[in-house]
């Protein structure tokens, strides 16, 4: 799923106008908003929740050597779409790659706290 997405975006960026590139990204207005964005205390709580629910695949404090599972690279990989991609993947899962469906199990509050932490550990390159 990720590979297909990435190829599409690259193709669009390389071959077509800026207009269609925007159209391929998600709608900025419809992009979800993290209510805790930038809150350091929440980020700390989020680290603990990530360690409890996600670390067995994604690594303690999101430290992970397998790049496809490395959540510190969401920003590099998806740019402004990272937040939408995070929500979609967590809620719908990627069952064929081992990612369960978390909708109905983890609350919005928990998910946003985890995301708030992830925003503090995004890689530069």
């Amino acid at each position: 799923m990720f590979e297909k997405f990435a190829v599409t975006v690259l193709t669009v960026a390389a071959c077509t106008s800026a207009l269609s590139e925007v159209a391929m990204g998600d709608d900025e207005a419809a992009r979800p908003v993290n209510p805790y964005a930038g809150d350091k205390a929440v980020a700390q709580e989020g680290a603990s929740l990530l360690n409890q629910y996600c670390a067995h695949c994604h690594g303690q404090w999101a430290v992970q050597g397998e790049r496809p599972r490395d959540l510190r690279r969401l920003r590099i990989r998806y740019g402004d779409d990272a937040i939408s991609m995070f929500r979609t993947t967590v809620e719908e899962g990627r069952m064929d790659k081992g990612m369960p469906v978390w909708k109905g199990v983890l609350s919005d509050e928990v998910l946003w706290k985890i995301y708030t932490f992830l925003e503090t550990v995004q890689a530069e390159d």
């Binding site: 670390a55 067995h56 695949c57 994604h58 690594g59 303690q60 404090w61 430290v63 992970q64 050597g65 397998e66 599972r69």
Partner: peptide, 17 residues
Amino acid sequence: IKGPPSFFGALGQKMIE
């Protein structure tokens, strides 16, 4: 192995390397 290193954070990353 690929699964267990995830449990180990930075040491797991070292395993994978």
